[in-house]
Design a protein around this nucleic acid. Structure first.
Lengths: 209, 209
DNA sequence: TAGATTGTTAATCGATTAACAATC
DNA sequence: TAGATTGTTAATCGATTAACAATC
């Protein structure tokens, strides 16, 4: 057990990754924490603190090599390995995720789609066939599954999460409007779209106060 | 300008709202900060502090009336007013949002859909016709628009946000993978799905450390 | 009234920012 | 070497938790 790094830090890493990717595309070779700071609207101090949680990626008097830092952050985020993803609940949101090519570029590969609606059986999304949920145990036996995206009604979310845990799928990307935090050894990332919309609503109402 | 309330607090309000809604459904009339605390896995102290940013909603020796607190948080979040929403970019994610009935229940009404792809012209989602983006100025003139959901490629996100600002639409629910924070008087809520997926990836890799 | 639980002040903890010595 | 900029320690700030008097 190494020193635990706070989720506040982790949440900022993908953002660094994105800005560094843009710098790479723009052909920028090196950057100082100060330059990056003014681009990203965070303090240079925070950038250096954040990065030094993971190691010294820069060089005094020079700054950071963009390509190197980009690659290192990618490794920190686990993007050097491919993640096999299944989507459970093939409604509109499930289909959107299955279709989102950007995830593939980051190494998240959709390997299976599941639903309970027999009408969907045999249909495909981006060439991937939709299976019935009762085929899940068999599927997991044959295919390595790293992440399950849950885009299903909240009523079924918890029991499905439990089942996934028992089948050995330990990471859940949860879009159901329920918190799945306190289950077993699951790693859960909740995306509550309506929460985010309500936060926006608050900020609209209080914008000029 | 009243005392500014931190976004950390605001982010928790929708979660309180959700738990109170569930209690209401379950027919629970009153609850103490302590009971709510154990349900939600936050400290009772934090609950009371959070709520008291907005006023005293409880009663000593009694706790909180569930219905009353639920309604008050709804008002705080601006849910007592209907918000008209347009969706710009009717790909998979745009369609998913247009179809998401839950938002309607919270008072977010989809009033218009826009895209640049002529092939979509005249098609409908949930009865709402898809318009071409160049019809946007005219549309906004005739219809009150409170929020624009941007589900379009990041290349077009910033210019579209600028245009929306100039047309008087000041709130953006941004799904494009780019930060739209520093534009004019815009209120922006960013939803970066791939950031969230990368955070999950990190937590998978570091789960057992 | 006695008991319960809030609203609020004070204490603690953690995260952010500032400063600067190390070093390329 | 001199200048630049990191890595890291110290100071500050803000958010969370604890404590308790107020009060229903």
């Amino acid at each position: 057990m190494e020193k635990e790094i706070s989720q506040a830090v982790i949440r900022r890493m993908p953002r660094y990754y994105r800005y560094l990717g843009e710098l790479l595309d723009a052909g920028v070779e090196r950057i100082s924490s100060n330059e990056l700071s003014s681009k990203m609207h965070v303090t240079a101090s925070q950038i250096r603190q954040d990065l030094n949680n993971f190691g010294g990626f820069g060089q005094q008097g020079y700054g950071y090599n963009v390509q190197y830092l980009y690659d290192e952050i990618g490794k920190i985020l686990g993007l050097n390995e491919t993640h096999n993803v299944i989507v459970i609940g093939i409604g509109n949101l499930g289909q959107a995720i299955a279709n989102y090519v950007k995830f593939e570029k980051l190494g998240f590969r959709i390997v299976g789609l599941f639903d309970v609606n027999p009408a969907l059986k045999g249909k495909t999304v981006r060439g991937i066939p939709i299976c019935m949920l009762d085929e899940l145990p068999e599927f997991v036996k044959n295919t390595k599954v790293d992440i399950a995206a849950l885009t299903l009604p909240k009523q079924n979310a918890e029991s499905t999460a439990q089942q996934l845990a028992s089948l050995g799928v330990h990471a859940i990307w949860n879009f159901a409007h329920v918190d799945l935090d306190d289950i077993d050894g699951l790693v859960v990332e909740n995306v509550h779209l309506s929460d985010s919309l309500m936060q926006l609503s608050y900020n609209i109402a209080n914008h000029n106060k």
